[in-house]
């Protein structure tokens, strides 16, 4: 497969090693829908030496914060984040799954009070790291498929 190249960015954030096919969902999870008028580059199913293929997102002129990107771990746990200033990587880190998912993933229990018209965000608490397990703070249900219930 021919390597896909995206031009380097001067300032901003590069999200690399995204699970193939998830780049659009990554943008969605970050709340980026095009209305922000940010310059974005995006590659899907690009060649990766490590994983065979991957997605990649470059966001210009915006440095994402740790809290903002950690939620990506529920979608693509191996993603790495690079903060770019003047074409140089000034900081690089991997996403880490948050201990609490608030308002990001709905409880899978359809009878949970948070799936009604109540003024509270969903709240899932990590109860185990390996395998990663979340439990609803309200109804106590262990969640079997976090990704499926991303809001």
């Amino acid at each position: 497969m021919k390597e896909v190249r995206i031009a380097p960015i001067k300032n901003g954030t590069v999200i690399d090693h995204i699970k193939p096919g998830k780049a659009l969902k990554v943008l969605d999870l970050l709340g980026i829908d095009g209305e922000e008028r940010m310059a974005l580059s995006l590659a899907m199913y690009a060649h990766s030496k490590k994983a065979g293929s991957k997605d990649l997102v470059k966001i210009e002129e915006k440095e994402l914060k740790v809290d903002e990107v950690n939620r990506l771990a529920i979608l693509t746990p191996n993603a790495s984040i690079s903060i770019i200033r003047d074409f140089q990587v000034v900081r690089k880190f991997n996403v880490a799954p948050p201990e609490v998912l608030e308002g990001i993933v709905k409880c899978e229990n359809i009878n949970c009070i948070t799936n009604q018209n109540e003024p509270v965000p969903s709240r899932l608490i990590m109860t185990r790291k390996d395998p990663r397990t979340y439990k609803c703070h309200y109804c106590g249900r262990l969640q079997s498929d976090i990704e499926k219930n991303i809001i």
């Binding site: 009878n111 949970c112 509270v120 109804c139 249900r141």
Partner: peptide, 13 residues
């Protein structure tokens, strides 16, 4: 007493 799971936790909050 409420028919939805998690109702009491929400009420307590």
């Amino acid at each position: 007493r409420h028919p939805r799971e998690g109702a009491a936790r929400l009420a307590a909050g």
